[in-house]
Amino acid sequence: MNKYGGIILIFLLAFTFSIPGSGTAVASPSSALGGFLTEQGPPPPGANDPNCRPDEAHPVPVVLVPGTFETMAQNWAVLSPLLAEKGYCVYSLNYGYSHAGPATGPIEDSAEELKIFIDNVLQLTGAQKVSIVGHSQGGMMPRYYIKFLGGSKKVDNLIGLAPSNHGTTGLVGLSELTSTGSDLTSCAACLQQLAGSEFLKKLNEGNETPGRVSYTVVATRNDQVVVPYTSSFLSGTPNQVANITLQDYYPLNNIEHQGIAYDPDAFTFVMDALAHEGPADPERAVGLIK
């Protein structure tokens, strides 16, 4: 087990399929007071403070989107407090809850939930845009919001940690994500994330990176869920898209799919993307250029 393995194991053991709220509340005066945040259930440390307001140094709120079978409290227990300590207003949500667990419902419906949540965050903070950091499905699902639900005007950065942008041929890997061994046919989002699904064909048809959004993808060669790991990568111009393989810059890093959401090396690229115009510059991020 590597040095981050103990932390990751604790959070995986703490995982629960039970989350309060359905995420279907609409923007309203009560949302502006932060009531929509409590409906999401327990947040990760540092997130969902209704009194946080973006400042001049950190004008864009950050929305953390968990992956399939994940809750926000578990998925972002490490990154969320780090972002808050750096001065960002951090928000997160639970979504896509079905009898198969969190983030398992149809991805189109989950994107609608994300749209409502972001509208509420913008109303609460007075910001014009948000930046999104997502893990696995959480890095891919926001692309549906951006492409089909008007999100291109409301998102500054989309940063995906091992996102399932083109799906996976590793059905066994998806099975390993469940602690119950449940039938994956009951998980609509799982079937939609299989390579070649109708959902992914629609999502990736034409422009994969629409709008004036900056797209950063951080993948790991050790990914056993998104297979091949390069299926995470997006097409687009270098000034808009950065496709980063973690081991190109940290050769001794053996982190895999679940662990990347807790990995300080991966966070290096997240922080760089958030702090600069455009996507992450990996050489700048690791200090190879000034």
Rank of each mutant, 00 (worst) to 15 (best):
T125V: 04
H166F: 10
E176W: 14
Q128S: 15
V121T: 00
Q74D: 10
T178P: 00
F117H: 02
D183Y: 14
E108C: 00
A77V: 15
N157G: 07
D156Y: 06
G134S: 13
H166R: 15
I132R: 11
A84G: 09
P81Q: 03
D119L: 10
G126V: 02
K115Q: 15
N207K: 12
G196T: 06
G150D: 04
G126W: 03
L83H: 01
E176K: 15
V130Y: 02
A195P: 00
S164E: 09
H99W: 15
S136C: 06
L161N: 03
Y95R: 12
C187M: 09
A84R: 10
D156P: 02
G134Y: 11
Q128F: 07
Y91G: 08
Y144W: 15
Q193E: 14
E208D: 01
Y95V: 11
V121I: 09
S186D: 14
K201P: 00
Y95H: 13
I159F: 07
A162L: 02
E112P: 01
F199W: 12
G105S: 12
L124F: 06
G196F: 06
L200D: 10
E108P: 00
I116D: 13
S136D: 04
K115A: 13
A100C: 15
T104W: 04
G101R: 09
G173S: 08
I116R: 01
L171R: 12
A162T: 13
E85D: 14
D183G: 10
K201I: 07
L122R: 09
N204H: 09
A77T: 14
K147R: 11
